[in-house]
């Protein structure tokens, strides 16, 4: 096994584990807003590590360029979608469960 293969396999394994962990969090978290945090693990850490692992596997080819484009696409669109989700939920009156109760703290 070449060193590049070892690196790429480690990245793929770490990415797969963080994807599964994110999905477990999606099931375990108590309310909608905390679930979004779990989903963002899949969107950023899981996706980033798996794409990075595939890039190492592909080397310097057009395939890597396409993987970079997919990565940038996910990195630019996923926060926009999350933000839209959170705003829509708040606008429809879905109150987040807060640890300290009541109003947002003002620093």
């Amino acid at each position: 096994m070449s060193p590049a293969d070892a690196i790429s396999w480690a990245l793929l394994a770490a990415g797969g584990v963080s994807c599964v962990l994110g999905a477990v969090g999606l099931l375990r978290m108590p309310d909608f807003f905390t679930r979004m945090h779990a989903a963002s693990v899949v969107d950023t850490v899981g996706a980033g590590l798996i794409l990075l692992g595939l890039m190492v596997q592909a080397g310097l080819t057009l395939v890597t360029v396409k993987l970079v484009v997919i990565g940038l696409l996910i990195f630019f669109t996923s926060p926009t979608a999350s933000h839209a989700l959170a705003r829509a939920a708040l606008a429809r009156g879905l109150e987040p469960k807060l640890a300290d109760g009541g109003a947002p703290s003002k620093p």
């Binding site: 963002s40 950023t44 926060p79 933000h83 705003r87």
Partner: peptide, 12 residues
């Protein structure tokens, strides 16, 4: 977007 991208924090 950076706040939202970082797991654990979310811009509402």
């Amino acid at each position: 977007n950076s706040i939202t991208l970082t797991p654990g924090t979310l811009t509402v």
